[in-house]
Each structure stands twice: as C-alpha cells, then as structure tokens.
C-alpha cells in the first residue's frame, strides 16, 4: 500500500491536497454529528438526550466551518451544503470509525471516546499549524472537544466499571470498533504532504499521545485494550464500510429528490 511508497519532501501543499485534507476533517465531524443526532429523543435518560444533542450540534458546527473553508480552497463555488448534500459516497473522506452505526449507548460512547481523544490531540496540535484558518477553527473547536471527552470518558468509566452487563457490553463494542482506529494513524500521501507543509502533525507522534490517553481512560474503566489488526479501512480515501451509503441516502434525500431548490 501507499505506506511503503516514498513521497518527496515538499513544503508546497497544493490547493487540491489542502482541499482534500480539510475535507477529511470536515466529513469526520459531519458524519459523527449526523450519527449522534440519531439519539435525540431516544437516549437512556432525558438529560442524556440534551447532552448528546449538544455534542452533535458542536460537531455539525465544526463541519460547517471546515466545509466552508474547503469550498473556499477549492474555489469552484461549492458552499457547505453543496459539499455536504451533493457528493457521492466515494467522494466522502471521513474516517471509517465515525460512520459506524450507533449500536447501543455503550457502543456510541466507545466510538466517541476513541474519536474525542483523537480530535483533542489533533486540534491542540493545530495551534502550531502553518494554516491560519485551521488554527482559528481549532481554537474554537478544541474547547468544545474538551467537553465532549469529559462527557464520553465519564460515561465510559461508568459503563466499564458499572455492572457486569455494562462491562461486557462496552468491552465487546471496544473489541469491535478497535480495528477502525488503525486508520487514524496510518498516513497516506496527503497526510505526509500536510505534515511536511507544517499544516498537520506527524501521525506517529499523535498516536503516542492518543494511546497514552486512551490507556488511562480504559484503565479507569477497567477495560482491556484490544490487539491491533492488520487490515486498514481507508475512509479518508473514500473506501467506506457499507453503512455510509445508507447514512447519506437518508441525509441527502431532500436535496437529491428536489434538485436546485432553496430550503
């Protein structure tokens, strides 16, 4: 795979790559926000309906800022809605982890912890990015994400170290979802170019701090970290699991059924 290929060192982070890189961040926030919004009205307690809705709103807000920025980089006149509603599945470049179905509340929480720590590490790093817009967007998003992690890790500890049933459930979800974490730290050309241009961090370094944080939380939650698996999904390159298509056909329904009108 592309891991082995040698990418020439270049500080020139061209428009197409920058567009693609920002779009990855945008799609990851958007798809996760969309998934979380499915809980609203169906959560285990009324207070949780409100909590999950807040996280969903933060993520969609982040996605809107990032999509608008991506549209500006692309300079082809596409706005946030055209990018969100009129791209096909293989043009979406979110991490495969975030398109996974909600499952039970514990499964949603496991997915959230894995991605919250990743986003928190990444957004914190963006403070030193050479991309000014990313710095600005991250400055706002990092505060939101800090709260997301407080919420999700709090719940993971409760469920991991709760009852026998809850422990078994979240450990199973963790085992199931772990394979999608490899993608978070497996760089491709765009990641390497972004790193070389000082736009994004080295994913290996990011992985170190991510693992450290994850281990702390899993330890407190009395959960066991699963072994890494060799297969890598590449959602960020448009290689998606079967779930994304369904999510998009739902999300994009009105825009597709009534093209070209205003809502």
């Amino acid at each position: 795979m592309s891991r082995a290929s040698v990418v020439p060192v270049s500080v020139d982070f061209a428009q197409t790559e920058r567009f693609r890189y920002v779009l990855r961040l945008a799609d990851t926030s958007l798809i996760l926000g969309q998934r979380l919004s499915e809980w609203v009205g169906h959560a285990p307690a009324l207070e949780e309906d409100l909590g999950v809705a807040n996280i969903s709103l933060d993520l969609i807000g982040q996605a809107r800022m990032l999509l608008s920025y991506a549209g500006e980089i692309e300079a082809a006149g596409r706005d946030e809605d055209q990018l969100a509603y009129l791209r096909d599945q293989n043009d979406f470049c979110n991490l495969a982890l975030v398109e996974q179905p909600n499952g039970d509340f514990g499964c949603t929480i496991v997915r959230q912890v894995l991605i919250d720590v990743w986003q928190l590490e990444l957004l914190s790093w963006f403070d030193a990015s050479t991309d000014q817009r990313l710095r600005e967007i991250a400055a706002k998003a990092v505060k939101e994400t800090r709260y997301h992690l407080r919420y999700s890790s709090g719940w993971l500890v409760r469920l991991g170290d709760g009852t026998e049933e809850s422990h078994t459930r979240v450990q199973t979800s963790l085992n199931d979802l772990w394979k999608f974490t490899t993608e978070l730290f497996t760089p491709d050309e765009i990641d390497r170019l972004a790193e070389n241009a000082g736009v994004a961090p080295n994913l290996n370094v990011l992985r170190g701090s991510w693992l450290h944080r994850i281990d702390e939380i899993l330890n407190e939650a009395t959960l066991t970290r699963p072994d890494d698996v060799p297969y890598v999904w590449f959602g960020k390159r448009g290689e998606h699991t079967e779930y994304l298509g369904h999510l998009l056909s739902d999300m994009q329904y009105l825009q597709r059924a009534y093209p070209g009108v205003t809502w």
Partner: peptide
C-alpha cells in the same frame, strides 16, 4: 454527573 447535566439542561 449532575454538574454536566446542569450544563446541558440549564445553560444552553
């Protein structure tokens, strides 16, 4: 948990 719920329920 009550603090977090208070944040989500009463300070939107």
């Amino acid at each position: 948990m009550a603090l977090e719920h208070a944040r989500d329920v009463y300070t939107r």
